[in-house]
Design a protein around this nucleic acid. Structure first.
Length: 423
RNA sequence: GGAGAGGUGGCAGAGCGGUUGAAUGCACUGGUCUUGAAAACCAGCAGGGGUUAACGCCCCUCGUGGGUUCAAAUCCCACCCUCUCCGCCA
């Protein structure tokens, strides 16, 4: 959530920064609502003060044994006026909250201006696109040729955009998850966390999936619903919701390997072939909770941790800085990591690392006690994939394929594959 | 699923419907004392919000949401959560 104080004080400037994100913020409508809020709140609070005062004097009079009947007559209609004022205030407040909860984060000043993904900025590349002296297969042809991908089985079970992996491919998938978790916990200083895959609406609100993107998530039918997590960012980050951390507890670094679930509403026809875009996929997620002044350094280390996975796997990639028009709802700044896929002759997203500054922290009331002020202040939260396991598996298949349809196993994965060098 | 107990400040733990946002203890912070530390003593110490140039004033919050009342931590209703026992179960 954007700081309500900032919005109130500097409405025009906020509107300009939102415009960079293609959000049309109606300043006049906001000002009107805000003025109404102020009036309602002042009125409601003064009536509350009046009620408190009179209740107090009635109590005192009664204690002295005085006649309280005239005092009661005095406040006869106060209750009605008060509850009317309170009803109005909460309606205005609700409207204001709805407005605020629907606004995306403000972009950081270092974020390039742009309308869509075509204006993202390539920040660096690592490695060279893999060269082959034979015609490469994409991951679908390769995996089906070897009987590793049970497309019919997946469709029978769950419909489109689901996958069944078999044999060595299932193991490769597991090996990747294990390798990533081990790297982040033993070398990058993350705590491994195992989290629920179903969360309450409050958690989805905290990280920004709700209220605006309810249609993107699967929900249960109980009331209130629970949501299948679209990313472990949701449970991991919300672990610090409603808490005040001591300075010594920061930074918090957590990682979790989970399944993720997405409706993929609105992506009809996109990536229908293969495993790139599924309703259910697995991911190793990285989350940082840090002091505000440390969050941009944390973003650099976060993307570095994600990069290290591909470096060890010897997979070529590039880092892209998302422009203002392409960033996610909660992000102030985002780096995407894209891995080279020979089957598509293209770089494809495999990780996205974002600093949300205090946007999520404010929604979920995640704070720390600043020793300099002694006061609770919002933390900054960051999240990134480290990495998407399915897409990483695709990258291994396509980049490590051999002319006869086998796949060499990257050195760092061999211990997780029972020593196999090729499958 | 059944039976019972309970949810109050960082923690522990009081709280006849009425100057209780909350006694007391611990923890924490500052001070006195001390060569230093400890002890002792003194003082401070919840969060959020409104208003104000500021000092300050005011409002909300005792699991959550309703209700009764001039007045609710305290009474009533519903829900949530925790603990114990029974049942079921990976």
């Amino acid at each position: 959530m954007i700081d309500p104080q900032l919005l109130r004080k500097d409405t025009e400037a906020v509107a300009r920064r939102l415009a960079d994100r293609k959000v049309d913020f109606d300043v006049a409508a906001y000002n009107e609502l805000e003025a109404k809020r102020k009036d309602s709140q002042v009125l409601a609070q003064s009536l509350q003060a009046e009620r408190n005062q009179s209740a107090k004097s009635i109590g005192q009079a009664k204690a002295k044994g005085e006649d309280i009947a005239p005092l009661l007559a005095n406040v006869a209609d106060l209750g009605k006026r008060l509850s009317a004022a309170e009803v109005e205030l909460s309606a205005v407040q609700q409207a204001l909250d709805d407005l605020l909860l629907g606004l995306p984060n403000l972009p950081h000043e270092s974020v390039p201006l742009g309308n869509d993904e075509s204006e993202n900025v390539e920040t660096r590349t690592w490695g060279e696109p893999t060269q082959f002296d034979f015609d490469v297969l994409d991951h679908v042809d390769l995996a089906e040729k070897r009987g590793w991908l049970d497309h019919d089985g997946a469709t029978r079970l769950s419909g489109s955009r689901f996958a069944v992996l078999r044999g060595p491919l299932a193991r490769l998938h597991r090996a990747l998850a294990q390798f990533m978790l081990d790297l982040h916990t033993t070398e990058h200083g993350y705590e491994e966390v195992n989290v629920p895959l179903l969360v309450q609406p409050s958690a989805m609100l905290g990280t920004g999936q709700l209220p605006k993107f309810a249609d993107d998530a699967f929900a249960t039918t109980d009331e209130p619903p629970r949501y299948l997590i679209p990313t472990a960012e949701v449970p991991l980050t919300n672990l610090v919701a409603d808490t005040i951390l001591e300075a010594g507890q920061l930074p918090v670094r957590m990682t979790a390997h989970t399944a993720c679930f997405r409706r993929e509403a609105g992506s009809y026809g996109k990536d229908t072939r293969g495993l790139i875009r599924q309703h259910q996929f697995e991911k190793v997620e990285l989350v940082h909770v840090v002091q505000p002044d440390a969050s941009y350094d944390a973003l650099e280390s976060l993307i570095g941790h994600a990069e290290e996975v591909l470096k060890r796997l010897q997979l070529p990639y590039r880092i892209v800085t998302l422009c203002t028009g392409d960033m996610g709802f909660a992000a102030s700044k985002t780096y995407d990591m894209e891995v080279w896929l020979p089957g598509q002759s293209a770089y494809r997203e495999i990780s996205s690392c974002s600093n949300t500054e205090d946007f999520q922290a404010r929604r979920m009331k995640a704070r720390w006690r600043n020793p300099e002020t002694g006061k609770p202040e919002y933390v900054h939260t960051l999240n990134g994939s480290g990495l998407a396991i399915g897409r990483c598996m695709i990258a291994v298949l396509e980049n490590y394929q051999t002319a006869d349809g086998h796949v060499r196993i990257p050195d760092v994965l061999q211990p997780y594959m029972g020593g196999a060098e090729i499958i």
